[in-house]
Simulated assay, not measured.
Amino acid sequence: MRKGGFTLVELLIAMGILAGILTLVAVYFGDQRDLTQRTQSRNEVQDRVRMVMQMVTQDLQMVGSRGFLDSNGNLVTTVSSGCNGVNCLTSTDGGVQDGFGAQYVTNLRSSSTQACRAVSYAFSGNTLQRSDVPCGSAASLVGLAPDILAMDIQYQCSDNTTSNISSGCPSGSYPRSARVTVIGQSATTVSNIAASSYTTASGSTVNCPAGRICLALTQEILMPNLKN
C-alpha cells in the first residue's frame, strides 16, 4: 500500500482535467454573453425600426386631412392646413434615404390653432430627423432615430404607375399609397455576425456591415385624404 500523497503524474492529470473543465465553463459563459448581447441588440434595433415605421405610417395616413372635432364634438372643416389634396405632400428622393413633408389637421391637439400640423422628415448622416410644427411655421428638425440606413419610399399612383417622388404621378392621377422600407442597424457591434444585404421598396440594395444586426420592414401605407 502506498503511504505517500499523489504522484507527479497524478497531479498533472488532475490539473489537466481541471483546466479542461475551466475552459468549458469559460466557453459556455462566453457563448451566453454573446447570445445575450445579440438578443439585446436585436430587440433594440427592432424597437427603433418599428417606432420609425409607426411614426411614418401615422403621418402619411393623415396627410391632407382637414377635419377637426371641437370641444362639443362638432366637425369643423374650416381649420386649414394651407394646402389641398396632393399639394399637402412633398418629397425628396435621396436614393434610399428619402425625405418628405406632410400637412394635416389632427384631433390630437387641444385647440384649432394647434391642430394644423406641418411634419417633415430628413436625414443627417444615418440619423433620421423629424419636425412637427404648426402649419406656417419654420421646420425644426430633431433627431428621431439614429443608425437608420434607409427610409426608401415608392409612391403608388392611382393609375397603377409608380414614382420615387410624390409629385411624379401622371397628370390626372394622385399618390394613392406609399410603399415604405425602413432599415436600421444595431447601435453596437456584435461578434460573429456576417455582412448582409436588403432590397428596398424601390428595388435598391442596402448593405448591412459585418458585426451589426440589421432589420428591414416594408409596409404599404394608404393615403386616402389625397384623393380629393
Rank of each mutant, 00 (worst) to 15 (best):
M1C: 07
G5R: 03
F6Y: 14
T7H: 04
L8K: 08
V9R: 08
L12W: 02
M15S: 10
I17D: 04
I17E: 05
G20A: 09
L24P: 04
F29C: 05
G30D: 05
G30P: 05
T36M: 11
Q37D: 13
R38C: 06
R38V: 11
Q40I: 10
Q40L: 13
R42V: 06
N43Y: 11
N43Q: 12
E44M: 09
V45K: 00
R48Y: 05
V49E: 01
V49L: 07
R50S: 03
R50H: 05
M53A: 11
L60W: 03
R66W: 08
G67W: 08
F68R: 13
D70F: 06
S71M: 10
N72M: 06
N72Q: 12
V76P: 06
T77S: 13
T78Y: 04
V79D: 02
S80H: 08
S80A: 15
S81I: 13
S81G: 15
C83K: 00
G85I: 10
G85S: 15
T92H: 03
D93P: 01
V96G: 00
Q97M: 14
D98Y: 01
Q103N: 15
Q103D: 14
Q103W: 13
Y104S: 06
Y104R: 09
L108V: 08
S112P: 11
T113S: 15
A115P: 05
C116Q: 03
R117Y: 06
A118L: 08
A122Q: 07
S124I: 09
N126G: 01
T127E: 14
L128V: 07
L128M: 09
C135F: 09
S137H: 09
S137C: 04
A138D: 07
A138M: 07
L141C: 05
G143Y: 09
G143D: 15
P146V: 15
I148C: 01
L149T: 01
A150D: 04
N160V: 11
T161P: 08
T162D: 02
S163L: 02
I165P: 00
S166D: 03
S166P: 03
S167Y: 03
P175M: 01
S177F: 10
A178T: 02
T181H: 10
V182R: 01
V182H: 02
I183E: 00
G184M: 02
Q185S: 02
A187G: 13
S191P: 04
I193H: 04
I193L: 09
I193K: 04
I193C: 05
Y198Q: 14
Y198L: 11
Y198W: 11
T200W: 10
S202R: 09
S204H: 12
T205V: 13
G211E: 07
L215P: 01
A216C: 10
L217I: 15
T218C: 05
L222A: 14
